[in-house]
Design a protein around this nucleic acid. Structure first.
Ligand SMILES: [Zn+2]
Ligand SMILES: [Zn+2]
Ligand SMILES: [Zn+2]
Ligand SMILES: [Zn+2]
Lengths: 147, 147
DNA sequence: GGCGCGACGATACTCGGTCTCTGTTTAACC
DNA sequence: GGTTAAACAGAGACCGAGTATCGTCGCGCC
């Protein structure tokens, strides 16, 4: 992600007021590389221009999430973080080392899984969550010098 | 899940002391139907025999999890719950209505996904989390009488 | 320019989870 | 069976993420 305007436009299109706080949020989110915690934004906001209130951080993230611009990920250690999204159904790989993250298309898993799960368990699946964790190319290279 | 002994035996096998609190925990966990929150156990423990301390609840669950006897699930609403497990790599479907849950085998997703993700993103995947949410057969029947 | 609703932010609060510390239990060894 | 070191339980303090409240302010609209 890297374009604040995409975010603000989406907000506008969805009928949300354009406010200073939200513009800052859009900028911050767009500037993140990989996963980030709400707390990170709070700190960053406080550091630069006039800070954004804690409540607003969460409210904005909630809106962004409802618009599919951001997604919550549940890290292996139980913490919660967010990642910026580029629309369409997808999932994320998150680097356990540096936190960078990337989207992965649906991989065609959804329909298969849904069907299989349904026929094996009788459950009518209506949503799912898939998260991959591992090492990003950079960290991978860093930990395995050349061997 | 329904056998407390399986749990206590596993603890024993792993070299953990057999204590009163852990036996109670084994019984409680075995008695749960579907997903349950730590808080639930706390309340239930308090209600029946001599309660188990809050810290102990979490410590035990942590051990159970490390032994693959229990797994943490991140519900769609952000809450955390646990489900009892029957070993081997698998995932869960959780009923969004009544909370019942069931294991689903790997579905063959793991190797495919791993490979696809790796070749598309360059990430070296070493763990993943897949959760399905929907309606269990009972709730399904209940909400769609016969139509 | 004025109005009303929506959003902001400070603060207080809740709640899930952890830490710390002390007294107790356990298992192993004699 | 008695002794002892290490593991454990539990009470309570503590912490941090997230939420609720509420007075103020800004946006969009007329
Ligand atoms: Zn979570
Ligand atoms: Zn990385
Ligand atoms: Zn399981
Ligand atoms: Zn159900």
């Amino acid at each position: 992600m890297s374009d604040p305007d995409t975010l603000t436009e989406a907000l506008d299109r969805a009928g949300y007021h354009s406010t200073a706080a939200r513009r800052v949020m859009a900028e911050l989110v767009a500037a993140q590389e990989g996963r980030f915690k709400a707390e990170d934004l709070l700190v960053q906001a406080r550091r630069t221009r006039r800070g954004v209130g804690r409540a607003t951080i969460f409210r904005s993230l909630e809106i962004f999430e409802s618009l599919g611009l951001v997604e919550q990920v549940h890290l292996p250690n139980g913490e919660h973080a967010f990642v910026a999204c580029e629309r369409a159904h997808h999932h994320h790989v998150v680097c356990t080392q540096c936190g960078r993250s990337q989207e992965v298309g649906d991989l065609g898993i959804t329909p298969i899984a849904r069907e299989l799960v349904e026929q094996r368990t009788g459950y009518l699946v209506d949503s799912h969550r898939i998260e991959f964790f591992g090492l990003c190319p950079e960290c991978r290279a860093a930990t395995t010098p050349q061997a």
